[in-house]
Amino acid sequence: MKKRAVAIAVLAVFFLVAATFVGAKALYETKSVPKGERHTISEIVPSKAKWEKVVKGDGGFMEGINFDRKGNIWMVSPMSGELLTVKWDKVHQVKKYPGPVGAKFHKDGRLFITDITGVIHAYDPKTGKSETAVSTYKGQPFNGLNDLVFDKDGGLYFTEPMGSSAINPVGRVFYLPANSKEPVLFADKIAYPNGVALSADGNRVYVSEFGKNRVLSVPAKNAPPSPETPFVFGQYEGGIGPDGLAVDTEGNLYIAHFQAGQIVVQDKDGFKYGTIRLPEGAGTFTTNLAFHDGYLYITESSKNEVWRIKVLKKGLVPYGLQ
C-alpha cells in the first residue's frame, strides 16, 4: 500500500509540473516584435464615432452603471445614497441605501450593491426587497467597500479601499464563493483598491490601484496552475487614478481614468491602444463603464452625466446576463 501511495504521489507531482510547464511555455513563449506601432485607438473606435449624451442626473455622484436583461440602465450614487434607474430619458430613484458605490447583477436577477458602510446588499427588482449578502470577515466588520464582479461560477470579488492610500497601502480584495456568506481574503496591501474586473478567460483579476495610478493583474482564485504572479498591468499618468474597469471579448481592458476625463484601452498583454477622451465640455470624473448594443457607456460623476460612444469590439457578457 505504501508503494502504491508513493507512486500516486509521484504521478500527481509529475502532472502538476507538466501542467505548470505547459502554462509557462504558453505564458512566456516568444512572439514576433511588431514593425510599427502595436495599436491605434482606431481599432477600438470608428473614425466617425462621436460621443452622445444619454442622460443627466439631478445630483449625487452617479456611477456603478449596469444593464439588466431588458436593456435598462441601473446606477448608484454614494453621495446621495441612491439606487437609480433610467426611465423615459430621466434618472429615477429606486431605493435608498447608506452609501452605495458599485453594483453588479446576479444570474438570479438580484442586484448586488457594495456600500461604503462595509456591507454588500442584494436587491431584488421584482419584489423591491433587499437583504444583506455579506457584512463581515472572520467576524469583523469591513471597512467601506467599493466595486465588485462575479466570476463564471457565481463567486464574487469585491474591493475594500476605505482607509488606504498611496502612503498607507492597507486596502484589500475579497472573494465570496458562490452560495456562501463567508468571504476569503484574495489580495491585500493595496493602495486604495477601486475597480475590479476579470480577464476574458477568467484567469486574471484586474484591480484598479487608485492610490498609485495603476492597474494590477492577479491570478484568479480558480485559475489553473501557472507560474504567473501578480504584476503591474498598466501604469498611467495624469488624473488621479483608475476607477471602473470593463473587458471585451478579445480580452482588451477599458479603464475609466478618474479626473482625466478619458478611457484608457489596453490589449490583453498590457499594450495600449490609446485613450478615448470625453468631449469638450464634459466633466473629468470618469467613474464606471459598461458595454451595451455596440456602445461603450460611461458615467461622469462631476456633472452626473451618462455618455456613450460607438465601439468596434463586443463587451464580455456579464455573469448577470448569461
Score class of each variant (00 low, 15 high):
G59L: 09
D153E: 15
G202S: 04
K189M: 05
A26W: 15
I240M: 03
G241W: 00
S226W: 00
V265K: 01
V76T: 07
D188F: 03
K104W: 08
F158Q: 00
I263R: 04
V265A: 03
S217P: 04
F285G: 13
G144P: 00
L198C: 07
T114K: 00
F231W: 15
K53P: 06
K48P: 08
L312M: 13
S165R: 13
F174Y: 08
L27N: 10
G244P: 04
F174H: 00
W307Y: 15
K25R: 14
G320N: 05
V232E: 13
P318A: 11
I298C: 10
E29P: 08
P227F: 00
E37R: 10
N288I: 04
G320D: 04
A5D: 12
G144T: 00
A5F: 09
E237W: 08
T117G: 11
I41D: 07
I309E: 02
I298A: 11
N288S: 13
P46M: 05
W51M: 06
S301I: 01
V184H: 14
T30E: 13
V317C: 11
Y297W: 07
F210E: 03
I255A: 07
V10W: 00
E131V: 13
G211K: 06
W88D: 15
L296R: 12
K138Q: 10
I116K: 07
P46H: 01
R38K: 12
I65N: 01
G71W: 12
K314R: 14
Q93N: 13
I309T: 01
G60K: 01
E160Q: 09
Y157A: 08
A49D: 09
G239L: 01
D108H: 14
G202K: 02
N194H: 12
D243G: 09
K129S: 12
P169H: 10
E131T: 15
E250N: 15
E300Y: 07
L289T: 14
Y206H: 04
V22T: 10
E29R: 14
T127M: 05
V170N: 11
N146F: 02
Y206M: 04
E82M: 11
G23L: 09
S130M: 02
D124P: 11
T249S: 12
